[in-house]
Simulated scan of single mutants.
Amino acid sequence: MAERKAWSDKSAEIMSRPGAGAAYEAARIRFELGETVRRRREELGLTQAELAERAGLEQPAVDRFEAGGTMPTIPMLERLAEALELRLSVQLQPLSRAG
């Protein structure tokens, strides 16, 4: 029977694979964007269907976005921001050596 690895060892093994860091970062961005949209939608008391209508989307697209399942385009972010009564601000920042 194979010896079980600790999660930290398994995680380090996975993250050492080529492209794993970029895939992890893309997933993090999708999750954070989706969480931000969901929180703002709830602050405004909107359902996913209502947000979808305001943004010119279908409700399943809003659901996937909030769950972190899609990487949005800038035009889609603009539509969501306007529907959520927000201004979209995109910034490029230097990478931190500590991160």
Results as ranks from 00 to 15, higher is better:
L44Q: 02
G68K: 10
L95C: 12
R79F: 04
A98W: 00
R4I: 13
D63Q: 15
L57I: 02
A52L: 02
L33R: 02
I74G: 10
L92A: 05
S96L: 12
L57P: 10
M15E: 04
A67R: 14
A6T: 05
V37W: 01
L77I: 01
A12R: 13
M71G: 11
K10C: 15
A98Y: 03
E43F: 11
S96C: 07
W7P: 08
F65T: 09
G21Q: 09
Q91I: 08
R17T: 06
A61D: 15
L57H: 04
V37G: 04
R87C: 08
V37L: 05
L95Q: 13
L51M: 08
E85G: 08
G21W: 09
K5I: 13
T70F: 00
R54N: 07
M71Q: 11
I29R: 14
E42Y: 05
A61K: 08
A49P: 03
G69S: 12
F65W: 13
A83M: 03
Q91E: 12
A23D: 06
Q91L: 13
A81K: 00
L84V: 04
E43I: 02
A27G: 04
L51W: 02
A52H: 02
I29Q: 14
G45M: 09
Q91W: 03
M76R: 13
L84W: 02
R4D: 06
Q93L: 15
A12P: 07
A52G: 03
P75M: 06
Q91Y: 02
A67Q: 08
A49E: 14
A98C: 06
K10S: 14
A26E: 05
L84T: 04
M71I: 04
E32V: 09
R38W: 08
E3H: 07
T47L: 13
E82K: 10
A52T: 05
A55N: 06
E82H: 03
L51H: 05
R41W: 03
E58A: 14
Q93V: 10
R97W: 15
R39F: 07
G68P: 05
V90K: 02
A52Q: 00
L46N: 03
D63K: 14
G21M: 13
K5T: 06
E42D: 14
S89L: 12
R41L: 01
E50H: 11
D9Y: 11
L57R: 01
V62A: 09
E25G: 15
Q93F: 12
W7V: 03
G34M: 04
L88P: 05
A6F: 08
E50C: 10
G19P: 00
L92F: 03
S16L: 08
R97S: 14
L77P: 01
S16M: 10
G99Y: 04
L57Q: 11
M15F: 03
P94S: 12
R17M: 10
A6D: 06
R97N: 11
L92Q: 00
V62T: 01
E53I: 03
F31R: 15
L92K: 00
R54D: 02
F65L: 15
L33A: 03
W7I: 11
F65Q: 04
E35Q: 11
E85H: 07
G19F: 08
L84E: 04
A27H: 02
R97Q: 13
V62S: 06
T73L: 09
G45F: 01
A22V: 13
L44M: 00
P75I: 08
A27S: 12
R41A: 06
Q93I: 07
